[in-house]
Amino acid sequence: MALNPERSYGARTGAEARADIDQGLRSYMLKVYNYMASGVALTGIVAMLSNPQSSFGLLAPIFYAEVAPDVFQANLLLWVSMFAAIGMVFFMSFRIGKMSPATAQAVFWGYAALNGVWMSGLFLTYTDMSITRVFFIAAGAFAGLSLWGYTTKRDLTAMGSFLMIGLIGLIIAMVVNIFLQSPMMMFVISAAGVLIFAGLTAYDTQKIKDMYIEGEHEGTASKKAIMGALALYLDFINLFIMLLHLFGERR
């Protein structure tokens, strides 16, 4: 039976197109993960440099005052850095379309650095060993969840909508607990937070992948990669903090 040349050509070009998408997707996701990892690394470096109990805490005098031997209190600049970091997230979310790729990168890394400033306070609450241990637990969990989100054939859209509702409830509960200061409520919030950010890691990974395949990356690949990295960065940092609340050893 003779082959139809046109069908043979069409099949070949279709396979080539799929191969191009697969290769482009791998390169795109690698860029997202590289941005995300660089942000986490920068946050960690700034946190160590801002740790007032560390011999490497060169930035600590800017953000902390020693009110008694080995007792430190955050000053106004630390609180300013925390609120500035929150503002930068909203700024990126609403202005990313008008930013150049270089500006988007600068804002992302600036946000990661500011996060490192206020996260330095974790070293005053938890032991260095437990922070290190929980970090690697969070990294392993994040890697597995993100891999599942990338490879699964299941549509996670419905799960993502449910998780976003849960995230809003989590934020409200955290605000309420600022006034209640309930250890039991904090435990419930942390346990729920682990589940929510674990699910969001898989959901966001699939969403980043689908946006590329659907062609939303055209002409804005670098900025889309940065926004994808920001989403995964937030998932990882919050997963780490929630796990630290559950399993960290306090000083």
Rank of each mutant, 00 (worst) to 15 (best):
A2R: 14
L3G: 01
P5H: 07
S8E: 14
T13R: 14
I21C: 01
I21D: 13
Q23N: 11
L25H: 04
L25D: 07
S27G: 10
Y28A: 07
V32T: 05
V32A: 02
Y33P: 00
Y33L: 15
M36A: 14
S38M: 14
L42C: 09
T43R: 10
G44N: 03
I45E: 03
V46R: 02
M48C: 00
N51L: 10
N51P: 08
S54D: 13
S55G: 04
F56A: 13
L59K: 10
I62G: 00
F63R: 09
E66H: 01
V67A: 08
P69N: 07
P69Q: 08
V71C: 00
F72M: 08
F72W: 14
Q73H: 08
N75G: 15
L76Q: 11
S81K: 01
M82F: 15
M82I: 11
A84K: 03
A85R: 04
F90C: 01
F91I: 10
F94R: 13
R95E: 13
R95F: 12
I96D: 03
K98Q: 14
K98E: 14
K98D: 13
S100E: 13
S100L: 12
S100R: 14
P101R: 10
A106N: 02
V107Q: 05
V107C: 03
F108W: 04
W109P: 00
W109C: 06
N115C: 15
N115A: 11
G116M: 07
V117H: 01
S120N: 08
S120A: 15
L124G: 12
T125N: 05
Y126C: 10
M129I: 11
R133K: 13
V134P: 02
F135Y: 12
A138Y: 03
A138G: 02
A139I: 10
A139T: 09
G140Y: 02
A141C: 05
L145D: 05
S146D: 02
G149F: 03
K153A: 12
K153Q: 11
R154I: 14
T157V: 11
F162R: 13
M164L: 14
I165Q: 01
I165C: 00
G166Q: 05
L170N: 08
L170K: 00
I171K: 02
M174C: 02
F179T: 10
F179G: 02
L180Q: 13
L180R: 14
Q181S: 13
M184L: 14
M186V: 00
V188R: 08
S190H: 09
A191F: 15
A191N: 09
A191P: 03
A191Y: 07
G193Y: 11
L195C: 07
I196R: 03
I196E: 07
I196G: 02
I196Y: 02
F197Y: 15
G199S: 09
L200N: 04
T201H: 04
A202W: 06
Y203S: 03
D204T: 06
T205D: 03
K207Q: 15
Y212C: 07
G215E: 04
E218V: 15
G219D: 07
T220W: 01
A221R: 11
S222C: 00
K224I: 04
A225V: 07
I226C: 05
G228T: 08
A229V: 06
L232C: 04
Y233H: 07
L234W: 02
D235C: 08
L239Y: 04
I241S: 03
L244A: 06
G248L: 11
